[in-house]
């Protein structure tokens, strides 16, 4: 007959048997980095090793690696800030367009649903670098609107190129989150005479934000690391600048390791906390549902 399963949210009952009591979940640690001092020692050793290795092979008359690194560090940091700017803007554009595309994927009108599905699949399954090249070489370098010429610099084209795969991935995140909600939410809203649009914006999407946040942040991390692709198409971001620094120092091979270690270090310091925060949010939302 009827399933009369014991409601999971019923208040706990008093019992003598400890196994009958609900399992007490450990309170979640507030957001905390899991790196210990030992990891720091490891990173420091890598830096010292690469630097001293380089130093050992350096002729005495040229500047020491530390001097060179200190000289160029502000420039490299500036380049890295540019990477972050590109990542934030690409993410913003990709999220805005991707959300619309994701909602179009659950449209009740088949032409809209099918075409947005196709666009999503197309850009999701294309290599990021190829999309970047497309944006770079297919978009004009300037616009002329009503006699006024507006330049269209490379870095803006890079943002557009990178926002394409972001858009497609956000579209899938939105679609997945909406479909993951129990159908009872839709039915309850329908029976209360909400329109489909109201249901979506007032009831479904607010609940989805929580579910979408971890994959969205994960995507942002990946995007940030992918911004170095822009160096291939000549945008002056951190990798391009690292290459120029190397050229300015007459291509000293002993600089390769410290220079690129530093770039790696910058990305790690920026992306690792995001990754940790994502894990924290995932575990937090997994319990509350």
């Amino acid at each position: 007959m009827t399933q009369r399963s014991r409601s999971h949210d019923a208040p706990p009952k008093k019992t003598d048997m400890a196994v009958m009591l609900p399992v007490k979940r450990k309170a979640h640690d507030p957001f905390r980095l899991k790196l210990t001092p030992w990891h720091g020692v490891f990173l420091a050793l890598v830096c010292i090793f690469t630097t001293s290795y380089g130093y050992a092979t350096t002729a005495p008359e040229v500047d020491s690696i530390r001097t060179v690194m200190l000289r160029w560090m502000p420039l490299l940091l500036e380049g890295f800030l540019f990477n972050i700017l590109i990542s934030i803007l690409s993410m913003a554009v990709g999220t805005a367009v991707g959300t619309m595309l994701g909602l179009a994927q659950i449209s009740l009108m088949p032409p809209i649903r099918h075409s947005s599905w196709f666009v999503t699949q197309f850009f999701r399954n294309a290599p990021w670098l190829v999309l970047l090249f497309f944006a770079m070489y297919l978009l004009p370098f300037e616009f002329t609107i009503a006699g006024v010429t507006i330049p269209f610099p490379d870095w803006i084209k890079a943002i557009i190129g990178l926002s394409l795969p972001v858009m497609a991935n956000v579209s899938e995140i939105v679609r997945g989150a909406v479909l993951s909600l129990p159908s009872g939410q839709w039915e309850a809203a329908e029976s209360l005479a909400y329109t489909r649009r109201q249901t979506l914006w007032l009831i479904i999407l607010p609940q989805c934000v929580k579910r979408m946040l971890p994959p969205w942040m994960n995507l942002y991390s990946i995007l940030t690391m992918a911004t170095v692709l822009a160096s291939i198409v000549g945008v002056s971001e951190v990798m391009t600048l690292a290459g120029r620094v190397l050229a300015a120092e007459d291509g000293r091979t002993d600089l390769l390791a410290p220079l690129y270690s530093f770039v790696l270090f910058l990305f790690f310091v920026y992306c690792y906390p995001i990754a940790r925060w994502t894990v924290y949010l995932e575990s937090k939302f997994a319990v509350k549902g």
């Binding site: 009872g184 939410q185 039915e187 309850a188 809203a189 029976s191 609940q207």
Partner: peptide, 10 residues
């Protein structure tokens, strides 16, 4: 009114 209540949890 439904079997599973279907309140809006947020």
């Amino acid at each position: 009114v439904f079997q599973q209540y279907n309140l809006f949890p947020h």
